[in-house]
Design a protein around this nucleic acid. Structure first.
Length: 801
RNA sequence: GCGGAUGUGGCGGAACUGGCAGACGCGCUAGACUUAGGAUCUAGUGGGAGACCGUGCAGGUUCGAUUCCUGUCAUCCGCACCA
């Protein structure tokens, strides 16, 4: 009899062996077929690994291990996305250098990941905070700058009125500062921006060539939010100024009854003198400044606004004079910051008009516009619109745009919801932006030879009270000479956002120690694109889009060989607490992976996280479920007491063996880890029924299980004395013909309801099957038979009246 | 508000291009082994005494719907300076 399985000894033992052998070190061996599997590198937080982390890591570890067994040269790397706010805040609070905090956190994470037995190639570990790494982050920034894709712009930031620092959105809770509870307002600051909008069309088009799960593609498309419409100039009465608006519905131009501009719109200040209710306007502007864009759009059940008393606009198509309002539902960041309001055919305009008693004019027939906005564009016909009358919406759009262009009062315009990327942070713990500001020469890029531009040591990590990065206080570092004219100049003191380092990290893994380039051409040509990239849905619109943008830019500059970075993208669901809520300290439902590894073992944790449910959906933690997986592995362990010397499959299990190999192989590649494990459980249940398993069956079985539970299977492999190590074994093959059973049981239905079953031969002729079926349900065949249906190998359905 | 998803036993979840709903696991019940069992093994387990009824709800298409269509309700997630 075998002893009880001791995971503590076995897991440590094999982890050491794999380390000593450098089992998963991968060479740039260009003669072998490559496979690049990638998971999002973690932010090494102070809390240590969360049970959510192992879910995606195990999933791709399974794929990586399986692919190695199938003869691929597999790159499965890991690193640290270590710049960021929590580390900096921790450093401020505890007066420890963020570098030290990061080092400690990384070490803890690494130990935890190591204890899970992942097949990462640790020789390729990277860290975004390493100057040898951010050298190249800065280098890419310089390329973007030189290409005109990085520019400075006035952008609002969250400003705590008490701490006098800029805050991240996350640090603003219910409109007040998370730390001190004081009011947070929006303050305009000059910021570095990246022109991602320049790549908006390419980012949409590129989606056609990649294999992403559909919801990721849809999310990205919606985020980019391409819409086709028109810009139209309205005339401000009595002024030279034209007020330009953007609309997706130029066909409704005759239905305009008022205009709305965003509270930040520059025309308001410009015509200050003409506005009679200036105090009310100022008051409204102040109120709006306190809200984020999100809050403004959020559940805005009650529309608010103030009319600009003294200013009116002229509708360019019919000369009508209409009022101009300000309201916070119009955002300065989308379109032109001004809209024409057509209450009859837009819900927000309709609500606004109802509230303030503004007229509603129907211009598309088909609805009851006094009672609700009619927004259906598919069926409408234009009315009350002069030369557009009688046209369908789509035709009217074309005609009005032609008209506007001819008259020079408007034009067709494609707009994107996507906004340029705010690339500045007034923080310490980020990559310095390698730009020098010179009074004479403007913004001058640092010479490439000067990179990396390292973060200076500072006394305090707290932002200065005028909202600048703590680096600004380091005058020795800040004051420099202009590379262009040699005169006195100042370094940029803002740093890059955390997203910078993660926008290209997958390139660095291909050649992590290169000091001449971000990676060699040969390495990039061989490894790119990433074959399979898995990450969270929450990164779909930011990280994933940002990194595609950088990659496309690098591709256009012939630095990388592929137009898309990732061939395939999948997404895992969250792991929730036992109570079905998100795990959090405040809810007290956090599970620590270390505890699970100690008590049940890494293999159990890996198995459980794969078995917990559909990979793409969120799932609740269950300690009983963990126990069930441990029981499964114990049953696997005990199989060694029922092994026979037979190296073949036994005849009664041959079909089952081939079916299982087929199913497990396919499921591992299609995110169906839960059903792969279920089928392996079903297989050992068969062994247990017979109380016997052949050596051949056992060898195949543990090979299939190895990617999921690498330690226990390595130990069993060694106990049985199979050759070499299991991680070097060959993936089992199946014979398609042998997966098919000859005799099968099928259901017999009457009018679609199952009444019995019959056993048939797969090849049996229809007549024979139907005859058999009728015999089976003879006593229930009481009516007239109308139809007899036989779907080969599936079902018989007798339709009777 | 905009966008994305999800609703199936007591619970987590299966079900290929529409074809025996509930695989696999948990829990529960009974039995075996045992001084003992919170270990292990074996059997059973959607509801109903039954004809039958059952995949959020209401319709529809079909010989046949968890799967397709229309409407509806509920829940969860993201929203650009958290990562």
């Amino acid at each position: 009899m075998s002893e009880v399985y001791n995971h503590k000894i076995v897991e440590k033992k094999w982890q050491k062996v794999w380390d000593d052998e450098k089992a998963f070190k991968v060479e740039n061996d260009y003669s072998k077929p490559k496979y690049y599997a990638l998971v999002e590198f973690p932010y090494p937080s102070g809390q240590g690994l969360h049970v959510g982390h192992p879910r995606p890591y195990t999933a791709l570890d399974i794929v990586a291990r399986k692919r190695r067994m199938q003869g691929y040269n597999v790159l499965y790397p890991m690193g640290w996305d270590a710049f960021g706010l929590p580390t900096e805040n921790y450093a401020i609070k505890n007066k420890i250098h963020p570098k030290v905090v990061t080092k400690n956190n990384v070490q803890r994470f690494k130990e935890q990941l190591h204890a899970l037995g992942y097949s990462f190639d640790w020789d390729r570990e990277i860290n975004t905070t390493d100057p040898n790494y951010y050298h190249w982050t800065q280098w890419i920034f310089l390329k973007l700058f030189k290409a005109g894709l990085a520019y400075k712009s006035e952008m609002p930031i969250n400003w705590c009125t008490s701490c006098k620092v800029g805050l991240a959105n996350e640090e603003v809770v219910n409109g007040v500062c998370e730390r001190c509870g004081s009011e947070v307002v929006r303050k305009v600051k000059s910021q570095w921006m990246l022109k991602i909008t320049e790549y908006a069309d390419k980012l949409i088009e590129g989606l056609d060539s990649v294999d992403y799960v559909e919801k990721v593609k849809v999310s990205q498309k919606n985020w980019i939010g391409k819409s086709e419409g028109a810009e139209v100039d309205f005339i401000v009465k009595g002024k030279e100024e034209k007020l330009r608006i953007y609309t997706t519905r130029p066909d409704t131009l005759f239905g305009v009854t008022y205009m709305v501009v965003s509270p930040e719109h520059p025309m308001i200040e410009k015509y200050k003198e003409d506005i009679k209710n200036w105090n009310a306007v100022v008051e409204y502007k102040e109120m709006a400044a306190k809200k984020s864009d999100f809050e403004r759009a959020e559940l805005a059940k009650e529309k608010t606004g103030v009319v600009l008393d003294g200013l009116t606009a002229i509708n360019p198509v019919n000369g009508k004079e209409i009022p101009i309002w300000i309201s916070d539902y119009v955002l300065m960041t989308y379109g032109t910051g001004a809209i024409m309001a057509v209450p009859a055919h837009d819900e927000r305009d309709w609500e606004f008009a109802k509230k303030f008693g503004l007229p509603i004019i129907e211009v598309v027939a088909g609805g009851d516009v006094q009672n609700e906005a009619f927004t259906n564009v598919a069926t409408g016909t234009i009315v009350n619109s002069d030369f557009l009358n009688g046209l369908e919406v789509a035709d009217a759009k074309k005609k009005i745009i032609e008209f506007l262009s001819e008259k020079g009062i408007g034009e067709k315009k494609v707009n994107f919801k996507l906004r340029d990327w705010v690339f500045s942070r007034q923080r310490y713990w980020g990559e310095p932006i390698p730009i020098i500001a010179c009074d004479k020469c403007g913004y001058v890029p640092l010479e490439e030879s000067e990179l990396p531009l390292e973060l200076p040591e500072v006394d305090s990590y707290m932002p200065t009270d005028n909202g600048e990065s703590p680096i600004a206080a380091m005058t020795d570092w800040v004051n420099t000479t202009c590379p262009c004219c040699g005169g006195p100049a100042k370094r940029e003191t803002d740093t890059m956002p955390q997203w910078a380092g993660s926008s290209w990290y997958f390139l660095r893994y291909t050649d992590p120690d290169n000091n001449e380039a971000l990676a060699s051409k040969e390495a990039l040509n061989y490894w790119l694109p990433v074959d399979w990239y898995n990450g969270g849905m929450e990164h779909t619109t930011l990280h994933l889009l940002y990194s595609r943008f950088w990659h496309k830019f690098l591709y256009d500059n012939k630095i990388v060989p592929t137009s898309e970075p990732y061939q395939k993208r999948t997404s895992h669901g969250m792991i929730l607490g036992e109570n079905g809520e998100k795990m959090s300290k405040s809810r007290g439902n956090v599970v620590n992976p270390d505890d699970i590894i100690t008590e049940y073992g890494a293999d159990t944790l890996r198995t459980y996280e794969m078995f917990i449910g559909a990979f793409e959906l969120s799932a609740s933690w269950s300690e009983d479920g963990v126990k069930g997986c441990r029981r499964f592995l114990d049953r696997v362990w005990k199989l060694q007491d029922m092994i026979t010397d037979d190296l073949e499959y036994s005849s009664d299990l041959e079909t089952k063996m081939h079916q299982t190999i087929k199913k497990v192989s396919a499921d591992f590649e299609s995110l169906k880890y839960n059903t792969a494990i279920a089928s392996m459980m079903a297989l050992i249940n068969e062994f247990y029924k017979k109380n016997q398993v052949t050596k051949g069956e056992f060898k195949t079985f543990i090979t299939l299980l190895n990617p999921v539970a690498p330690h226990i299977t390595e130990e069993l492999w060694s106990i049985l004395g199979f050759e070499g190590k299991i991680y070097q074994a060959t993936w089992p093959e199946f014979d398609e013909e042998k997966t098919v059973e000859n005799t099968i049981e099928i259901a017999v239905q009457i009018n679609g309801k199952t009444k019995g079953t019959i056993a048939i031969n797969r090849e049996e002729a229809k007549e024979d099957v139907i005859a058999k079926a009728k015999e089976e349900i003879a006593d229930k065949l009481t009516g007239t038979i109308v139809k007899e249906i036989y779907v080969p190998g599936r079902i018989v359905n007798i339709v009777q009246k």
